[in-house]
Design a protein around this nucleic acid. Structure first.
Ligand code: MN
Ligand code: MN
Ligand code: ZN
Ligand code: ZN
Lengths: 141, 141
DNA sequence: TCAATTTTGCAAATCATTTGCAAAATACTG
DNA sequence: CAGTATTTTGCAAATGATTTGCAAAATTGA
């Protein structure tokens, strides 16, 4: 494990919630974007991190990385403040495994996440279909 | 509803399984890529189609479009032949709604799909972690 | 210590998707 | 219907995330 890869892994593990490559790069000093992406590929292939692709109006289509391993989790993405909220350990794995087996499929992976408004943003009076004038107050990088 | 938009909608509805913008464009004669994308945005905003973003090694990160409306479904993507297989009507909507409510979240949408090997590709002796020399026999566009 | 292998930084390339802009199509109005 | 306002489209150029070629730097191993 090289220093760059270790650093990327530590950033992902310490954050706890999903991070984009751009966000990871911003948290690392002195490493090129290509190195970050190559480290992410390496770590995912080793099973040390997981990823999923999410599209939101503000950030477009980006891949997000989380800690990997046996106990994988799923997330909620607030379309207003763009924070991720932990939905807990996977509760759909067994379900999809069973459905797949009924159809003769060998399920090796799945992607699951929800979107909407977090509690804070609801309290702030934001509506799901918000105006473009609304700002992104919490997530700037 | 303009002709271009109607054509795009018909292509999506007639296909039944998810299609990428590229595939949709290939099924339509005489319409620019930009027009296809703009039609897709329009149709999705009107709730006539749904979409999700999926990443696979062969096709990279692409957005896939399906028929929209009340009864939405989820899909399995074969990483070998790249066909989509219908997993039936959504069975996670209520579940995630409940989990969200417990955490004070206003869930407005979710993405859920599985990946692996379809029955045909398993029978053909393909393994989930396949070699780059394996070819994409069924999906060419 | 020296050659072989792997990793990195930098710049350029990819590729899906978006956007500016003027022409074409459509909707409206008198 | 004619004339004008609004919307949509085609084309080309721009975007932005991600990938890749290549030579230098770092690491490995004998
Ligand atoms: Mn976001
Ligand atoms: Mn595919
Ligand atoms: Zn929020
Ligand atoms: Zn298959």
């Amino acid at each position: 494990m090289t220093k760059a890869r270790k650093t990327v892994l530590e950033v992902v593990e310490q954050e706890g919630s999903p991070l984009s490559a751009r966000q990871i790069g911003a948290r690392i000093a002195g490493h090129d974007t290509a190195t970050v992406y190559r480290a992410l590929h390496y770590l995912e292939e080793k099973g040390l991190i997981d990823s999923f692709v999410l599209h939101c109006d503000r950030h477009g289509t980006e891949r997000y990385y989380t800690t990997g391993g046996a106990c994988h989790r799923h997330w909620f993405h607030c379309v207003e403040c763009h924070r991720f909220i932990d939905l807990g350990e996977c509760v759909v794995g067994d379900m999809i495994e069973k459905i797949g087996r009924q159809k003769g499929l060998a399920v090796t992976g799945h992607t699951f996440f929800a979107t909407g408004l977090c509690a804070d943003c609801q309290a702030a009076g934001k509506m799901p279909g918000r105006l473009p004038s609304d700002t992104c107050s919490t997530q700037t990088d």
